[in-house]
Each structure stands twice: as structure tokens, then as C-alpha cells.
Design a protein around this nucleic acid. Structure first.
Lengths: 113, 113
DNA sequence: TTGGCATACATAGGAGCTCGATGTATTGTG
DNA sequence: CACAATACATCGAGCTCCTATGTATGCCAA
């Protein structure tokens, strides 16, 4: 993404969303985000790890170290509070995009099948 | 908006979009944005005025003082460079929303009429 | 075997943007 | 006549994300 300000405020919500689908570790999240967005969102370690720590401190996610192919990985999972936060933030995001469209008229809609 | 980070990076683009429709002055822009978004985007003076100055410095908009009902107003209009920037930034915004949807699946679509 | 790359964690510092607060001044209204 | 709305402007605070840096392991190729 060229405009580095746009992604602000979305990192935490995206992490919660991914963890609501399955347990994941940090590096895996970075790669998953990059893949799903077709390389549009490329997060740096300095972006994700502090965000994960903050989410854990807030009790929205929980972590546990596990061994995979000899390397220790810190797996994160969504807590009940995290699920609530995800719902709330998804609503905020939806309102934001809707408001943005009311002026910019981006019309990010798919063709009917 | 509750999440104050979301609006980051969108102010300049929204201003360009509004000025592409008609010439406007600062205070008018604030009210127009508030009205069109149904109160979702409420910009403060400390948000808009520095943004306007930066856009003008960059040559994307031009200003001229005019008198309306005794009060001096600084009217802004889009320059040719501004129109180009608007097109580019609109594309960026569209890609951003699309990438966001690829993970969050907000589906901000309207019902067919 | 040794160098390089991907993997995997982490933190500190800097930069940029928006908001809150504050200031000035005029117009319209109750 | 006081107050709200209009209309401009700036400064400092706060938050987030990126760059840079550091550590360490596993794997593959030369």
C-alpha cells in the first residue's frame, strides 16, 4: 500500500478476525494477511508483534508456546472478550467504509454471479 | 467515529473529492462532510485547516479570499494536479477497501433496486 | 561445511496524522 | 445584550506504524 496511513486502526481488528477462524502464530499471521490481500497489506514485525502484545495485555487474545519442527512458536487464540471486541470493531469498520463511500463513492461491489 | 485512527489518510482525499464537485471554504467542508456521512465523520478545525494548507502547499488546491455577508471566506478549488492526485488516491482507497474486505468481509453493498 | 535465506521472536526510536485546547473576530438570534 | 454559530488559525499531546536492529534456529545449495 502506498498510503501508509490508511491501514491505521485496522491491524488489531484484522488480527482478531483471523484468530476467530483458527489459532495462529505471529509470523503465520503476517504471511496470511499478505496472501489474502494479494500483497496489498504487508505488515512488518514492528507492526504485528507490539499489536499482539497489546491485544494480549487487554485480554482479547491468549498465547501459548508450542514446538513445531524444533522451533518454538507462540500460538495465539481469541478469548471471549476478543470475540466481543471483534464484533464491535467490525461494526465500526462497516460504518467507516459506508461513510467513506457516501462521499468517495468507491462502490466496492461484486458483480452478481 | 469511535476509532479515531481509521480516518487517517482519508482527509486529504475526501477534501479533493468535494472540491472536484464545487468550490468550497473550510468551514463549509467540515459541515458538508458531517452531513453526508450522517455524523460519522466530524472533523475538527485542527484536522481540516492544516490539511488544507498542506494541499495548497503541494499545489493540489488553490485559494482565494472572498467576502460573503461581511465575513471573509477563503475559498478553495481543485487544480489540475489536484485532479490527478484525486484519481490516484481514489484508486488507492479502492484497493485498500477491497483488501480490507478480503479479510473482514464487510460486504458494504447495496440491495439491487 | 559453510554461507545465505526463510523462519520466528522481540524492542527502541522516529515520523506522521488527528484531536483537544485555545485564540481572534464577526454575524445573527433570543 | 449575551450567546451561539460562523470562520479563520496554531500548538502540543497522543497514538500508531515503520525502520532498523538484534537474537536464534532450520534448511538447502554450493
Amino acid at each position: 500500500m502506498e498510503n501508509r496511513e490508511l491501514s491505521r486502526g485496522t491491524v488489531g481488528t484484522i488480527v482478531l478476525k483471523l484468530l476467530s477462524e483458527r489459532t495462529m502464530y505471529g509470523y503465520e499471521i503476517i504471511k496470511e494477511v499478505e496472501q489474502r490481500t494479494g500483497g496489498e497489506f504487508i505488515w512488518k514485525e514492528g507492526t504485528l508483534y507490539p499489536a499482539l502484545h497489546k491485544l494480549e495485555q487487554g485480554g482479547l487474545i491468549a498465547s501459548s508456546w508450542e514446538l513445531a519442527s524444533g522451533k518454538p512458536r507462540k500460538y495465539y487464540s481469541l478469548t471471549r472478550s476478543g470475540a466481543k471486541a471483534l464484533a464491535a470493531e467490525t461494526g465500526e469498520l462497516r460504518k467507516f467504509v459506508s461513510a467513506l463511500n457516501s462521499i468517495m463513492m468507491l462502490e466496492d461491489c461484486h458483480e452478481p454471479a
